[in-house]
Design a protein around this nucleic acid. Structure first.
Lengths: 174, 174
DNA sequence: ACCAATTTGTTATGTTATAACATCCTAATA
DNA sequence: TATTAGGATGTTATAACATAACAAATTGGT
């Protein structure tokens, strides 16, 4: 088995992905309908802005975008709680993930309730790959269980270099 | 092999551990001497305060303690950079770890350069167990490498219930 | 004692997140 | 269709976490 057989989980910071976004929003509509929760216009727009970011988005980046577009529409701006509440909803429903080591949010590539995701964060270009590898999840749960610890949620984040950046000899933190 | 054969990695939030602290400070002295870096009085005191906390300590908790004791000593107080710089030094030299999901710091149980640690965080009592399991580290590195990603640093944190709290039926977040 | 480098002090500010309460919207029902 | 109860959003204020920039003091080597 060659490495080429594996689909890359990376979402480069800059690429054309209107289609990804549309798919993600459609999936979100479906998932929320199934769960009986309301993906309101605001929540849907925040999800769209997260995806638009082509990478991890911080809460205040989203807030600024929201403010800008509301100002243009003659409405008043927006305040932090507006964004944080939408993010909380999206997190609770598995539509986005929070990357703890970046204080940032990213669209979930395979939304479904109660999965955590595992993230490969390039320290050079900032792109993020999402894994959801059951071997990793199970190994950690097993090791914890051996200590008598019952895992409810895993935070797995690896900082390093993506294939692209490793190839041209970048260093983490450049 | 029974579970009893495994030494618990848990450090309950409240227990008597003057000895642990002394050992940790001795180890820190030795490690810094070996590395040729200076564990100054301030840095050593901050390390001691982190250990005194009987669990994860936040930067401003440490700052408050430092202020209090300096006020008593007739000196002026302390400001955030004083604490953050000491924490940065201790992190850089592997004497403490930062727990990203708590924005908190905890003494490293087995200090040595360049290891990350893996944390089991009880969502009920707040106690934290530190693992440093090479199987977990290797599996994640291997899975990442299969995607062409070179891992430099891993953040592994599991929220759940410690043996004690699981036994009396607590829930995460209580 | 002098110097250069490191460490610490100090002021100000930037960044991330939530509490508390008011208002508005929406969907179910009478 | 008018009512209404719950959920969603608006709004103000503040809490919690962290760093930039520059000044002063300390330390170790000569």
């Amino acid at each position: 088995m060659t490495q080429d057989a594996v689909v890359s989980p990376f979402r480069p910071v800059r690429h054309e992905h209107d289609v990804c976004i549309d798919d993600a929003l459609d999936a979100a509509d479906a998932l929320c309908a199934k769960s009986g929760v309301r993906l309101t216009a605001l929540r849907r727009r925040v999800l769209e802005l997260v995806w638009d970011g082509h990478g991890p988005m911080r809460a205040y980046d989203i807030l600024d975008l929201l403010r800008d577009e509301r100002m243009r529409d003659q409405k008043r701006g927006a305040a932090p709680p507006t964004v944080y509440r939408a993010l909380d909803f999206l997190l609770a429903n598995g539509l986005i993930h929070r990357i703890e080591s970046l204080n940032a949010y990213i669209g979930c590539g395979a939304p479904s309730d109660g999965h955590a995701g595992q993230f490969l964060i390039c320290g050079d270009c900032g792109s993020v790959g999402e894994l959801d590898d059951p071997d990793i999840t199970r190994l950690i749960a097993a090791k914890a269980e051996a200590m008598g610890f019952a895992v409810a949620h895993q935070t797995i984040e690896a900082m390093g270099l993506c294939p692209e950046c490793a190839r041209h000899g970048a260093q983490v933190g450049d």
